[in-house]
Nucleic acid binder design. Structure first.
Length: 426
DNA sequence: TCTGGGGTCCTAGGACCC
DNA sequence: TCTGGGGTCCTAGGACCC
């Protein structure tokens, strides 16, 4: 073995109860109080403050099931406000970038940061500095885990979440087995429900056991992902830091309806709206789609009304991001799967086979295409300035009975200057 | 009656993530 | 009565080819 070894140091920064923290930022009265944030349509609980967790409210639990506890304990409830969370997320990420440009924004509330250029001894101190800076500049509390691989930094982060300092480094620890032994196998990054079942069946209950399982066994009995996880637990990096933003490959817009829908006309309106949303999204990223999938379904939880779920995919003649074309095609797809007599609960569209718009000069480009592009541009600009769906298509309807329920919105808009929290220096 | 072997490409569905 | 939304990757199996 060579004595010169370049050790990577990866930090995982994770915002604590992110959506709750965002709401608290604008509402100091709910600090130290139990708070939950609901998913779209006020369906499930997707973010909980520590106080709410302590009451036994589970992640992903349907709101109506937790309602008793919520009322009894005067838990503060919020509908989700994604434009607010997205805005605050960007502020957090911008702050992180000042520590190193080698950053991978992993999700709305998480980022991996390369800290390899710091020495073993100083890395934990740097972690604490990052945490303090993010808190001071954005008001969002974070937990930071630092280790040799992404999977181990997830483990470290897990531990950091329970510590007051909020920072844990596994760098420089000779034997991490005692630490990994306390990590349940289902808490390991990349191990979901099915793998947990499989590992349990084979006597693997914690991260240490997976780490020390032989390579040959893992390769024979699971797939590449399984062996990658095991290697990462051993401190061998197998999952790269993805610092360059790659273009997405698909774009989905789907919603549960505020109330069940039975009329074909209303379903058509909903699907048309999702198409407008999706096509605007891919246009803003200069992408075009090769095909579209439309899907509808009834509630999987109410079998007494009969369950129906179906989807249809259609290829466009030529890849496109033209709203009119996309809506037209989606309605053809919908027509082929719609069945009368069902109470539909959800529908969605998926644009797939996305590619760069400018790489698409084809034989049939013509003046008409340019005109359509101009039209799409002006629709996007107007909607950007005056709010979404200022300009829409007739097929998108105006009634929108199918719109989401949002009964607990905080109605905070960070685009509104006067609502921004002020930080006083003294 | 008996019908090879190997390669590529595509797609649907499953598993996982937050 | 009431159960989210948006992604990626892998695999198995079918279609097709020589």
């Amino acid at each position: 073995m060579s004595s010169i070894q370049y050790t990577k140091k990866i930090a995982l920064i994770d915002c604590n109860s992110f959506y709750v923290s965002c709401e608290r930022l604008f509402n100091p009265k709910i600090r130290k109080k139990p708070v939950v944030v609901l998913s779209n349509n006020d369906g499930c609980i997707i973010s909980r403050s520590t106080e709410a967790k302590a009451l036994g409210i589970k992640m992903g639990e349907p709101y109506f099931k937790a309602k008793d506890i919520i009322i009894k304990n005067k838990v503060n409830v919020f509908s989700s406000n994604y434009s607010l969370y997205g805005d605050l997320s960007r502020r957090v990420m911008r702050t992180l970038k000042r520590f190193n440009s080698a950053i991978e924004v992993y999700s709305i509330d998480e980022a991996f940061l390369d800290l390899s250029n710091f020495s073993d001894d100083e890395v934990e101190k740097v972690g604490r500095e990052i945490r303090e800076t993010v808190l001071k500049w954005t008001g969002i509390p974070t937990s930071i885990g630092i280790a040799k691989t992404k999977t181990l930094s997830k483990v470290a982060n897990h531990i950091a979440k329970k510590k007051k300092s909020g920072v844990t480094s596994l760098i420089g620890i000779e034997n991490i087995d005692p630490i990994l032994e306390k990590v349940e196998i289902n808490d390991v990054w990349g191990v979901g429900r099915q793998l947990t079942k499989f590992y349990h069946k084979n006597g693997i209950y914690n991260a240490k056991q997976l780490k020390n399982k032989s390579n040959t066994w893992i390769k024979k009995n699971s797939n590449v992902l399984g062996s990658r996880t095991a290697m990462e637990l051993r401190g061998v990096p197998c999952i790269d830091l993805e610092t360059t933003q790659t273009k997405r490959k698909s774009c989905v817009v789907s919603r549960s309806f505020g109330q069940r829908i039975e009329k074909y006309q209303e379903l058509k309106e909903a699907v048309a709206n999702y198409c407008l949303n999706a096509s605007e999204k891919i246009r803003s990223e200069s992408l075009i789609a090769k095909s579209i999938t439309v899907f509808v379904r009834t509630s999987p939880f109410q079998s007494r009304f009969g369950y129906y779920s179906n989807s249809k995919t259609i290829d466009f003649a030529i890849s496109t991001n033209n709203s009119i074309e996309i809506v037209k095609t989606a309605l053809v797809a919908l027509d082929s799967i719609f069945k009368n007599g069902y109470r539909y609960q959800k529908a969605g569209v998926m644009l797939t086979g996305l590619s760069n718009e400018d790489g698409s000069k084809n034989l049939f480009s013509c003046e008409k295409d340019e005109k359509i592009k101009g039209l799409m541009r002006s629709i996007d600009n107007t909607n950007y300035r005056y709010g979404r769906s200022t300009l829409s298509l007739a097929s998108a309807g105006v009634q929108k009975r199918w719109n989401m329920r949002r009964e607990h919105s905080s109605k905070i808009d960070t685009a509104d200057f006067y609502l921004l929290p002020t930080i006083r220096a003294n």
